[in-house]
């Protein structure tokens, strides 16, 4: 039991609960099923992307191209709508095409990081420029709205099961699936292993390059799914709609306890991180805090979280290096 309280995820949960209870007092609306569902549904895209980013950060890399990749897939979806018949099959096909398009872009990042050994920040900065530029060029920055969407897709996005929107199920499937990969498959354990100690992983025969390739490809794959979620949620495709979202995603992952030093991070932690950011945003709206102050609070929380994490990391390192001194 003691170890549970020591876990980083636990302290994030405590903060989430603390803020929630404050908000419950501030606004009676906060703790209503409707508000909470809205809040979660509004963060499905960030959640899916953050789950992919968790794997990358565990291997102590970073991907700043996620928002651009997601937008690119969303734009592709809007073009696909022109070719696909208006039927349920098309929605299913979308779930095949979109992740594959994302996967290809992710593979490109992954190849450059793993085989060409260019630092991930530089690679993804480059692909961010390329992809975002191409998207703007092709779309001319034009917004596609729901009038051109097939009816089947619109009804898909309005599905509710047991009163819960379909997108929340989508997030849940991605979360459980990724958790399973991370916890129960060889490749998932390899992700944690190379994050923990790269040299050791090479020595025990883990194909380090393949794992790197996997995390970036998987990120692309999830970006494809996130693009469907984004399109379904906003019922529009906006080429400029997600600029800068990658930073929110990274912030959520870091808040959730993953560490850029590698080896640490979990799906439930990341989900808590997403939730924490979401609740703060929601709470500030409910508490009628001037929207312009919201970034100040979010930024301050990120800075405090990473500083706190670093301080406790240093402490734990200090404790490790002890000699048994005679009394």
């Amino acid at each position: 039991m003691k170890s549970l309280f020591k876990q980083k995820e636990f302290s994030i949960l405590a903060i989430v609960l603390l803020i929630s209870s404050i908000l419950t007092f501030v606004s009676p609306v906060f703790l209503t099923v409707g508000n909470l569902l809205d809040l979660i549904e509004g963060n499905v895209v960030i959640g899916i992307l953050a789950i992919g980013m968790t794997l990358i950060i565990i291997t102590s890399d970073i991907d700043v191209s996620v928002a651009a990749v997601t937008t690119a897939v969303a734009v592709s979806i809007s073009y696909l709508f022109g070719f696909l018949p208006d039927s349920w099959i098309s929605v299913l096909l979308l779930f095949l095409f979109a992740p594959v398009i994302g996967l290809v872009m992710g593979l490109f990042n992954g190849l450059l990081v793993s085989k060409i050994e260019i630092p991930a920040i530089v690679v993804t900065l480059g692909t961010l420029n390329i992809i975002a530029g191409l998207v703007l060029y092709i779309t001319n920055g034009n917004y596609v709205n729901s009038t051109s969407f097939p009816q089947s897709f619109l009804s898909f996005s309005n599905i509710e099961i047991l009163g819960i929107p379909i997108l929340i199920y989508l997030l849940a499937i991605v979360a459980v699936g990724t958790w399973f990969i991370l916890k129960h498959t060889l490749i998932g354990r390899s992700v944690l292993a190379i994050g923990g100690n790269t040299q050791s992983s090479v020595r025990v025969g883990i194909n380090y390059q393949r794992v790197k390739l996997f995390v970036f490809a998987y990120m692309g794959f999830l970006a494809g799914i996130a693009a469907i979620a984004q399109t379904a949620y906003t019922k529009a495709v906006d080429p400029n709609g997600m600029i800068g979202l990658e930073l929110t995603v990274i912030a959520a992952v870091v808040l959730g306890g993953a560490n850029i030093h590698g080896g640490r991070g979990s799906i439930h932690g990341t989900l808590l991180g997403v939730l924490l950011l979401a609740i703060m945003q929601n709470g500030m709206i409910l508490a009628r805090i001037d929207t312009y102050w919201q970034n100040v609070v979010t930024g301050a929380i990120i800075v405090i979280a990473v500083s706190y994490d670093q301080i406790s990391y240093k402490r734990s390192q200090d404790k490790l290096a002890n000699i048994e001194v005679e009394a």
Binding site: I62, I121, L247, I250, A251, V254, I260, H261, D290, Y292, W293, Q294, N295, V296, V297, T298, G299, A300, I302, V303, A305, V306, S307, D309, Q310, I311, K314
Partner: peptide, 23 residues
Amino acid sequence: KIGVSPILVTLGTMVLFEGVILA
């Protein structure tokens, strides 16, 4: 002084400074 990696710090302060400007 605290030793946080620059990418994380400036990620946070980027949002923070943006917020200050907006405010």
